[in-house]
Computed example of a mutant assay.
Amino acid sequence: MHGNHEADGVRKDRSPVGLDRRALLRGSAVFGLAAGGVLLSGNPAQALDIYNPFSGYPMTGSWQDHIDRGSLGGIDYAMSVGTRLPAAGAGVVRNIPYNGTGGHTVTITHSDGYRTQYMHLSQFLVADGTSVGKGGTVGLSGGAAGAPGSGNSTGPHVHWHLITPAGTRVNPLDYIGGGGALPKTTTEEDGVPGPVMWMRTQNWLRIESGYTGPIDGVPGPNTYAALQRNMRNWGYTGPIDGVPGPNTWAAVQRLAASYGYTGPIDGVMGPNSWRGFSRFINEDRWD
């Protein structure tokens, strides 16, 4: 049985500065999304430009585990049913319902012919032929035993593998250089926070502040609680409750002031605050 792992940002999460997260994700499946640079409609990245979107989840089945039991190979990550599944790299989506033992399967075909596959989904979220960028949500995880779309899964998880242009299944972790580099966020230029900015923020908080959720660019209570812990270094004295308010954002502005922000420390995040923060979050050490 695969263990459960509650996803960050799947429940009633708040988004800063009035961003509607559902609209954000819905838009990412239809047209290019400038905020954070997630969607590159018609211009998918190369297959080697992939990252591990599940690094915050426990691995419950390694590549070798699969090979040892006669599988063609794959990696399993435990997570609660309904967890959003970000694309490991840019490409074009194809949904395969009831794909044998793999159950509901999403395939993302990259521009050079490599294909990413996720198996045991509970729901598809974008239509066949949709161009999705790195980090764009493509479906919801499943895997509960006996549930529609679970295939032969015995517990909630996602199965991930990569397929070469020749049709050989390979370990995606061998193609991302031990984790892969996250893209830089365009928030540094346009002052509009988006999924890539939040992916980089989550990775920073994973490195520095004990964040253990997914690097999915969808902030929720776990992301915000880790941010509040880190903001102790910047004068935040409020509770670590995962509900950011003016005191949390004032501390973020103090951090941003070290990276070119010259506005007031008033706890109201605007484009200039986000630009300063993103100059920090775009540093190579958070790739």
Score class of each variant (00 low, 15 high):
194 G>L: 02
132 V>W: 01
137 T>L: 11
113 G>K: 05
143 G>Q: 05
177 G>W: 00
167 G>P: 03
147 A>M: 10
176 I>Q: 14
157 H>I: 02
199 M>H: 01
180 G>A: 05
170 V>D: 01
106 V>N: 04
148 P>R: 09
111 S>E: 15
105 T>D: 03
112 D>C: 05
158 V>Y: 00
103 G>Q: 01
129 G>H: 10
165 P>G: 02
137 T>F: 09
179 G>K: 00
127 A>Y: 14
159 H>F: 10
112 D>K: 03
127 A>C: 13
143 G>W: 03
169 R>Q: 12
164 T>W: 02
146 G>F: 08
128 D>R: 09
176 I>M: 14
147 A>T: 11
148 P>A: 12
139 G>Y: 00
134 K>S: 13
153 S>R: 02
167 G>T: 06
117 Q>K: 14
144 A>M: 15
138 V>L: 04
121 L>V: 06
127 A>G: 15
144 A>G: 14
160 W>E: 01
156 P>K: 07
199 M>F: 03
115 R>C: 11
106 V>K: 02
120 H>Y: 08
126 V>A: 09
142 G>A: 05
141 S>K: 02
188 E>S: 14
152 N>P: 10
157 H>F: 05
130 T>C: 08
155 G>T: 02
185 T>F: 01
197 M>L: 15
188 E>W: 11
173 L>Q: 13
143 G>K: 03
137 T>D: 12
137 T>K: 08
165 P>N: 03
136 G>I: 01
183 P>D: 09
134 K>V: 13
120 H>N: 07
144 A>E: 15
147 A>G: 08
121 L>K: 08
129 G>I: 12
120 H>G: 06
168 T>G: 12
162 L>P: 02
148 P>T: 10
133 G>C: 00
147 A>S: 13
112 D>L: 05
132 V>N: 02
152 N>K: 14
182 L>W: 01
176 I>A: 15
156 P>H: 09
176 I>P: 08
188 E>A: 15
129 G>W: 11
111 S>C: 13
166 A>R: 12
144 A>H: 13
157 H>W: 03
112 D>H: 07
125 L>Y: 10
142 G>D: 07
103 G>V: 02
113 G>Y: 07
170 V>R: 00
166 A>V: 10
110 H>S: 07
178 G>T: 00
185 T>S: 14
174 D>L: 12
135 G>T: 02
171 N>V: 01
176 I>D: 15
111 S>F: 11
157 H>M: 07
143 G>V: 07
157 H>A: 03
111 S>G: 13
110 H>F: 02
105 T>N: 06
125 L>T: 13
121 L>H: 06
150 S>C: 10
199 M>T: 04
197 M>N: 08
116 T>R: 00
123 Q>S: 14
112 D>Q: 07
141 S>D: 05
187 T>A: 12
103 G>I: 01
196 V>L: 06
128 D>C: 10
151 G>N: 10
114 Y>C: 09
153 S>I: 04
136 G>V: 04
117 Q>T: 13
195 P>A: 14
